[in-house]
């Protein structure tokens, strides 16, 4: 039995809803994350895979405490065993927890990229940044460019370096690789690997499942705002028989190299979530029990699965 590494971030039964005005002054709560469990361990890369709208990016906002004002959060988040309160989040943002956001829109359009990568903290890590930029294949003088002069891949590499320049122990990277060439993406992931090997926990939110299989230690599969399965990456490399949840298996089979078989139906929208298991309407193995009550999270063969029948 492999020794379990210490959990750095532990999320239990997290739900996030947005208060909205539906018609006139009538308020409704739109639940976008429900009963989500997630763990990130020091020294590991944990990938989060799932379709668009499955709540991947919102999870990072919830951990950092930067959700919009109309969001309400319930559930528990622990960081190093301590409950992650708004005050603690404020203290840890940018120092112990770093975010790699998704797109060039997260860069200030009127600030030079070098200054942005350095961030607002003093002293500026200029030398370290120059080395990092070169390693990521960013040409000289990139630090003097403005975001509108960058390609998508360059912008992403700058966002990646902004997180790598901190001494963060938890790095949440939200789709860091699209737009990069394969070598650049590999280099970026290698850097994340090095961060993890030096003791940080890296959370890799990604659509690029192949790369996640390759670089991650564990993979969490998201569906409609909840985690359906968390398993070692090796299980995903082995194939569907090693997996525990019908959705993870369907995801595996939908990959081009594994048969390219799509699953019928679509992910339910927030606001129209089914009772019980969120995957039940599309599940080939569902029983009456699944449509009534949400299955609890269970440990199965070194992974976690939220299914009555996962084995």
């Amino acid at each position: 039995m492999e020794q379990k590494k210490e959990p750095l971030l532990e999320i239990r039964d997290l739900s996030v809803s947005f208060r909205m005005y539906s018609r006139g002054l009538k308020q409704t709560d739109l639940r976008v994350i429900s009963d989500l469990d997630f763990t990130a361990r020091s020294g590991e890369i944990t990938a989060i895979a799932g379709a668009s709208g499955s709540g991947k990016s919102l999870l990072s906002s919830a951990v950092l405490g930067i959700l919009p004002d109309n969001a309400s959060v319930c559930g528990r988040i622990y960081y190093k065993g301590r409950e992650l309160t708004p005050d603690l989040q404020k203290k840890l943002r940018g120092t112990e927890i770093a975010l790699v956001p998704q797109s060039v829109a997260y860069l200030d359009p009127l600030m030079k990229t070098g200054e942005q990568a350095d961030g607002h903290r003093k002293p500026r890590p200029t030398e370290k940044r120059e080395k990092l930029f070169r390693r990521l294949g960013l040409p000289e003088q990139t630090e003097y460019l403005y975001p509108f002069q960058l390609s998508g891949g360059m912008a992403r590499r700058i966002l990646v370096s902004s997180a790598l320049l901190t001494d963060a122990q938890l790095i949440i990277a939200d789709e860091p690789t699209p737009g990069m060439s394969l070598e650049q993406a590999l280099e970026a992931l290698k850097l994340f690997r090095e961060m993890a090997d030096s003791g940080s926990a890296v959370v890799l939110i990604t659509h690029d499942i192949d790369l996640a299989f390759e670089f991650a230690d564990r993979i969490s599969v998201f569906y409609a705002g909840t985690t359906v399965e968390t398993a070692p990456a090796s299980d995903f490399r082995k194939g569907p028989d090693a997996l525990r949840h019908p959705y993870s298996r369907a995801l595996w089979r939908a990959l081009p190299q594994n048969g390219f078989q799509p699953l019928d139906g679509f992910q339910p929208y927030a606001g129209a979530l089914p009772e019980g298991c969120l995957f039940a309407p599309r599940c080939p193995h569902r029983t009456e029990k699944c449509t009534v009550q949400v299955p609890p999270s269970r440990e199965v063969r070194g992974g976690e699965v939220r299914c009555y029948y996962g084995a």
Binding site: S61, L64, I66, R93, P101, S103, Y106, L107, D108, H120
Partner: peptide, 21 residues
């Protein structure tokens, strides 16, 4: 904007956001 959201995610306070961005 998203770049201010990112600035907040990096620990910038209200005044830093105003003066930097």
């Amino acid at each position: 904007s998203e770049y201010v959201l990112f600035a907040r995610a990096r620990g910038e306070g209200e005044w830093s956001v105003l003066f930097r961005h």
